[in-house]
């Protein structure tokens, strides 16, 4: 275990109506075993003791699964480690003397609430537009009555692994939510349970995605590269197919 000294440049913004700016902070003796968020905890304790306002940031499970945390670190959503959420990024990835620039996930569809905290409810509304199977509780058939091959189940699981953190949007040069939307549409179009609604689903989820102000896809693969769950742009291709199907075959 060793420790490092860091300079942090963090985006500070009071709320969505006010203008923000970078503030610079110096941190000393940061253990390299610390997680990135624990490093911000240390900064916040330091700021509190100095009578200053701590940095607001979203986080919860700190196990890389809830999807609540996320910031752009030196220009990369969730920081330099691949397939890693910000909470699972550790300080051993940095060197003493480094200056780290921390910015919120930016997108027209993600208004900033405070500092690094953004409103990602646009993603919820995309799911609400059709990211489900319309089945009420009860009266379902036995779980084994429709066989699903391992390969299909695995592909669906690959897509379903999305944690909804929004890093794909934050990293996309066009602020597109294609990977997020594509993952959900893929999951449900791969499984037999999702098929009855596939056309309507593709249409309404894409429509909602556009309505929220997310951009289009220019096939630059940044989303896939920063995705903490390694979700492939193959899911975007699948969504395009589903969308085309709904276009050509929809009623």
């Amino acid at each position: 275990m060793s420790s490092i000294d860091l300079t942090l440049k963090i985006w500070r913004q009071k709320n969505n109506d006010s203008l923000g700016d970078f503030e610079t902070y110096i941190l000393r003796d940061i253990s390299t075993d610390m997680s990135f968020l624990e490093m911000i905890d240390v900064l916040n304790e330091q700021l509190t003791r100095e009578g200053k306002d701590p940095v607001a940031f979203d986080h919860d499970c700190r196990e890389g699964i809830c999807g609540m945390c996320g910031a752009v670190v030196d220009g990369v959503a969730h920081g330099p480690d691949r397939e890693t959420t910000l909470c699972q990024l550790h300080m051993r990835k940095f060197k003493s003397g480094d200056t780290i620039v921390i910015e919120p996930f930016r997108s027209i569809a993600f208004p900033i609430k405070k500092d690094l905290m953004v409103d990602r409810s646009a993603l919820d509304r995309i799911i609400q537009a059709g990211g489900y199977v319309s089945v009420n509780t009860g009266g379902t058939v036995d779980g084994n009555s429709i066989p699903i091959g391992t390969e299909t189940a695995e592909l669906a699981m690959d897509a379903a692994a999305c944690i909804g953190c929004g890093a794909c949007v934050a990293s996309c040069p066009n602020s597109a939510a294609m990977l997020f939307t594509g993952a959900k549409i893929s999951q449900l179009s791969l499984l037999p349970q999702g098929l009855p609604e596939r056309k309507e689903r593709a249409r309404s989820m894409v429509a909602q995605m556009d309505k929220e102000g997310f951009g289009y896809c220019s096939n630059e693969k940044e989303c896939e590269a920063v995705c903490p769950k390694g979700i492939s742009i193959r899911n975007i291709a699948r969504m395009n197919r589903e969308f085309l199907r709904s276009l050509l075959l929809g009623e």
Binding site: G75, V76, E103, I108, N174, Y216, E220, E222
Partner: peptide, 19 residues
């Protein structure tokens, strides 16, 4: 033109995938 609206929105610009 749509893309130009969202490009360069970060202080530090880093590409993960060399496009």
């Amino acid at each position: 033109f749509e893309k130009r609206k969202t490009a360069s929105r970060y202080e530090v610009q880093t590409r993960v995938v060399e496009n």
